[in-house]
């Protein structure tokens, strides 16, 4: 891959495409788009307000747990961004998290498995689940939302069978490097958050500069046109779902590590909607063909900020979901209005 050619910044707007210069440069959108600037602004305002009204908010003791809880949502959100860019969706990640988490927890309880083994096991299990979704969607050619509703039920069933009893008790601290404790931080930054940022950065580069990433946008824009220009649509789709599955596996490790030594059956429940909320707040279009990983990470931080802010303000914690709903409406609404203005211009 000839990096230097492709990673050069896009020509400044105002110059029409392919005009004077002999070497035709690629026209890429700005590295950080409008929606992301809006999100950064909203986050700064929120953090300042929360810092004023709850003095404890802007302290490491409050920010570190916040980042730990952002990590799995944003990490799985990276995969979900890939999927939604292809105009698909995966609502089975909640069930998949549950299955990965319980398999790893049970294994750690019964066998003395090292950290690397536990993580590898989780990723392999997640990958298999993602491939199941991907094969059904890409080669069975059925609506992603319907298939993943179905597989969500099947994953939950499998997870409940593995659970056996209502909880898994006495989980060893193998995964503490991803956890909330002192061992889970490097220079004050939670490891899980740092790992998520690295993966998100690679994903950002891939989507923006690698041909495989651009293919995903093409598929989401118009799958038929993408096929006609020679893109192998089905393998690309399969990769997107498989990647999400693998990230679900790693995310399940983060979730396990940030919990207690007891795992109960509510693990993963509702996570699929949280992940989708983070992705759409981040400006990825549910209709496909447009989206970014940076937005998803910011969206996840926003959702968790609201959740943690509401509790710290002493409001009923259930109110947080109301704000998540309102943020989805505002974020997608402003995007719709901008899109409308763009079309008029």
């Amino acid at each position: 891959m000839t990096l230097d050619e492709r990673t050069k910044p896009a020509p400044q707007s105002g110059r029409p495409a392919g005009s004077s210069t002999a070497t035709a440069k690629r026209i890429l959108p700005l590295p950080v788009t409008g929606q992301e600037f809006v999100l950064i602004g909203v986050l700064i305002v929120l953090w300042i307000l929360l810092g004023i009204f709850t003095p404890a908010f802007l302290t490491p003791n409050s920010i570190q747990p916040l980042l730990v809880s952002v990590a799995p949502i944003a990490l799985i959100g990276v995969g979900m961004t890939f999927i939604i860019i292809t105009a698909g969706i995966d609502v089975s990640v909640g069930g998949a998290i549950m299955l990965c988490a319980v398999i790893v927890a049970k294994t750690m309880v019964s066998v003395d498995i090292p950290l690397i083994g536990a993580v590898a096991l989780a990723i392999v299990v997640g990958l298999v689940l993602g491939v199941v979704n991907g094969v059904l969607i890409a080669y069975g050619r059925v609506a992603a939302i319907i298939i993943t509703f179905g597989t969500a039920n099947i994953f939950q069933f499998l997870a409940l069978r593995v659970f056996g009893s209502s909880t898994v008790n006495g989980i060893p601290s193998t995964l503490e490097v991803f956890g909330r404790g002192e061992a889970g931080r490097t220079l004050g930054v939670p490891n899980s958050f740092a790992i998520m940022i690295v993966i998100a950065a690679v994903a950002w580069w891939y989507l923006r500069h690698a041909s495989g990433g651009r293919h995903l946008f093409a598929i989401g824009g118009n799958a038929n046109a993408a096929r006609l220009v020679g893109i192998k649509v089905q393998p690309r789709l399969l990769v997107a779902y498989a990647l999400t599955g693998a990230l679900v596996g790693l995310g399940a490790c983060f979730i396990l590590a940030s919990g207690t030594a007891t795992l109960d059956q509510s693990v993963g429940s509702g996570k699929e909607l949280q992940v989708i909320a983070a992705v759409v707040i981040g400006g990825t279009s549910i209709l496909g063909g447009r989206g970014s990983v940076i937005g998803t990470v910011l969206g996840a931080i926003l959702v968790q900020t609201v959740t943690s802010g509401v509790t710290q303000l002493g409001w009923p914690s259930q109110l947080a979901n109301l704000f998540v709903g309102i943020f989805i409406i505002i974020a997608v609404g402003t995007d719709l209005l901008r899109e409308r203005a763009r079309r008029k211009a």
Binding site: L322, G325, I326
Partner: peptide, 10 residues
């Protein structure tokens, strides 16, 4: 999805 969150919370 947004109103699912909002109504449930209310």
């Amino acid at each position: 999805l947004a109103t699912y969150y909002a109504y449930r919370s209310l």
